[in-house]
Design a protein around this nucleic acid. Structure first.
Length: 209
DNA sequence: CTTCGGATTGGCT
DNA sequence: GCCAATCCGAAGA
């Protein structure tokens, strides 16, 4: 069963970001429960890839809510956003960290020697564990109410992109400045599950303030 | 065309 | 705390 992209996960990225926490992202045989996310908007956000308008690279950010935007970070890592803005406008939520809750064997094979709590800690690591590729950018998430047997059926090569929404308790959510961004780095648009061991280590950006 | 540096990470001082 | 890895968009000559 597939649902429409939820209304409460559509619109302003700063509002939507904390609501994504606890949700499951599933791809290529691995399921990750989101524990840390970061909001990016468009023309008003100097740190956003969409700041200067649409380009070939960021086109997916303008593709409408429930789509994925994957980009190459530092020439090495693949990082993913969930797009929240209506088609034609840009806003997205960067998936910064999560807990591997399914497909552990596959996840560990993609990051050998890494402790379980660190498997998807950081946007690049999360992308690696899920086996994300740039060709995925612009594709829609399939929303399913429960994971059910979907993961068991899926092998490490299953290209389906699934999202299972959750209902995080507001009391368990912390908020702070974004990680590693220069411009507008002080905007408190990073959200994480308080005390969760899979949350990435904070690093200050270069030219913030 | 050339140069600069980033929504990162892991390793080393 | 510092730095290299490695690609590409943006900006400058």
């Amino acid at each position: 069963m597939t649902l429409l992209w939820p209304r409460e996960l559509t619109g302003d990225a700063v509002t939507v970001a904390p609501r994504l926490l606890g949700g499951l992202v599933v791809h290529r045989g691995v399921a990750v429960r989101l524990t840390e996310v970061e909001a990016y908007t468009g023309a008003d956000d100097p740190a956003s890839h969409a700041y200067r308008g649409p380009t070939a690279r960021n086109a997916a950010m303008f593709g409408g809510p429930g789509h994925i935007y994957v980009y190459l970070s530092y020439g090495i890592h693949r990082a993913a956003n969930i797009v929240t803005a209506p088609a034609g406008t840009a806003a997205g939520v960067l998936l910064r960290a999560g807990e591997v809750v399914g497909g552990g064997e596959t996840a560990r094979s993609r990051r050998p020697g890494v402790p379980d709590t660190r498997l998807a800690s950081g946007p690049g690591n999360l992308g690696r564990v899920l086996g994300l590729g740039l060709e995925l950018s612009g594709h829609p998430f399939e929303v399913v109410p429960r994971l059910g047997g979907r993961l068991a059926d899926a092998g490490p090569d299953d290209p389906h992109l699934l999202f299972v929404p959750a209902r995080p308790a507001a009391a368990e959510i912390s908020r702070g400045p974004r990680v590693g961004v220069g411009a507008a780095g002080d905007r408190p648009w990073r959200f994480w599950i308080t005390g969760d061991p899979t949350v990435s280590k904070y690093r200050r950006g270069g030219t913030g303030r």
